[in-house]
Amino acid sequence: MILLKNGTVYTMDEAGVFVGDVKFDQGKIVAVGKDLSTDGCEVIDCTGKNIYPGFIDGHSHLGMQESSIRFEGDDVNEMSDPLTPHVRAIDALNPMDETIHNAACGGVTTVCSGPGSANVIGGTFAIWKTNGHVIDKMVINPMAAMKCAFGENPKRVYSDNKIKTRMQTAAYLRETLMKTKEYMAKKALAGDDISKQPAYDMKLEAMIPVLEKKIPLKTHAHRADDILTALRIAREFDVLMTLDHCTEGHLIVDEVKASGFPAFVGPSLTDKSKFELKNLTFATAGILNKAGVKIALITDAPVIPQEYLPLCAGLACKKGLAEMEALKAITINPAEILGIADRVGSLTAGKDADIVVSDGNIFNTLTNVNYTFINGEKVYQF
């Protein structure tokens, strides 16, 4: 049993922020409070230090595009077909790449990573912890969301023969959703009679959880018109959706708010590398947050190295996002959006012991992470 003693505890739950202790054992938080008993505990003095829940990035490609390597380690985009809902991130994740340990050293303990934005439908994202050597033992949810993409990327990748306009991108997605509805209806009508079942279609099978609202469409959309197209299709088919990147969300804040969908905002610590990023600003997160949109901040790693997630939150503060809201945006908010708040996102008894100890405000560039614990295991010490 480990006791973190006398630190400033950012619980991210109703207990708020206070100077106190966090006790954990066998991978779970046992108690959070003041003057907790030290009996039977390994005590770590956290006087003058901050104690946070492990940080969570809700959209990256960690483990899929390896460090210091080219095509051999790049498994982000399956660019053989614009429609690949049947591919799964878990089959491409390499937990032994150095970027995973770097993430943990920076306090990022949970990520949702998956396919890139080359395809109209790219496949499923997985949620996993940044410690271990076997991805099957690290994963929280192997099929957490279905990636889809609007805007420049599908047009660029498939401009030679399949996609030349945004109209075609939207049409591909609509067609796949309609075919899935038809496929589901045929399966239901056939019941248990295998002779009447439609021919097995792996792609359509993968889309069924989307139409059953078991997983959301994880929607890559930067420009305002692309965000609106995504929302239009979500309404047409009554599906769940997260607005990933949402770069121009601040220009259509009322529509984003009215949708009820959360936004994974970022990456903002990058150059305007293409036209659809011309309105990129760290102010987006604060504007959406003030309007009542649930936001989480992302790195899109390796676009921004995964360990710089807290830095991105700090820069969003500089542009108007309140400090506690920024902290929520890398802890409890992504946990709730991803459906894993019963395990992570706050320092609450019963949750996983994913804990970060730092020697100052985590948004400050001079602050060091002193300890990172994942499932109660000390995976990094400064």
Rank of each mutant, 00 (worst) to 15 (best):
V157T: 14
A188E: 14
P267L: 10
T242V: 12
I362P: 00
S358N: 05
L240F: 04
K218S: 13
R88V: 10
T372P: 08
S60W: 00
E14T: 12
L269I: 11
V87R: 08
T348H: 10
K5T: 07
H250E: 00
E276S: 04
P85R: 00
E323M: 14
M178Q: 12
H133E: 15
A190G: 06
D352E: 13
V22Q: 07
F363G: 04
T47K: 15
L83D: 06
V120K: 00
V139F: 11
Q168F: 02
G58H: 09
L93C: 12
T165Q: 04
I233N: 02
M12G: 03
Q306F: 07
Q306E: 13
D342C: 08
D192T: 10
G292C: 10
T367Q: 08
D254F: 02
E255L: 10
S117P: 08
F150L: 09
D342A: 13
M96S: 15
V379K: 06
A171T: 13
K34A: 11
Y183Q: 01
N333S: 15
T8Y: 08
V356N: 01
D192V: 01
G286W: 07
I140V: 15
F24S: 01
I233D: 04
G122M: 06
Q381L: 06
D193Y: 07
A326G: 09
R343P: 00
E307P: 06
N368Q: 13
I362W: 01
G260V: 10
T110L: 11
T38E: 15
L240P: 00
N50I: 01
E152C: 03
C317V: 14
V76C: 03
N361R: 08
G360W: 08
M96Q: 15
K203I: 04
H59I: 00
A296S: 14
T242C: 11
C41N: 10
G266S: 09
N131G: 11
D359N: 15
M241I: 14
I298M: 13
V303F: 05
V157M: 12
M202R: 13
E336R: 14
Y158D: 03
T219G: 01
M202S: 12
G314W: 05
K164W: 05
A89K: 01
Y183F: 11
K218Q: 13
L3N: 02
F373P: 00
K213E: 10
K34W: 10
P310R: 02
P154Y: 05
D238P: 02
C46P: 02
G132Q: 07
K290R: 15
S37I: 06
V210D: 02
V210F: 07
S117W: 05
G260S: 09
K290Q: 15
A326Y: 06
T47P: 03
N333E: 11
T176D: 05
I355P: 02
F125C: 03
A15T: 14
I100L: 14
D254C: 08
T110Q: 05
L211Y: 03
A31M: 05
P85Q: 01
L204C: 00
T176S: 13
R88H: 11
D39T: 14
K5R: 15
K203M: 09
F150K: 03
R88L: 12
P334H: 07
D91I: 06
T180R: 07
E307T: 00
G7D: 01
K147V: 02
N368G: 08
F382R: 12
H86S: 13
K257N: 07
A145W: 05
E255G: 02
I135P: 02
N6H: 14
T284L: 06
K319Y: 14
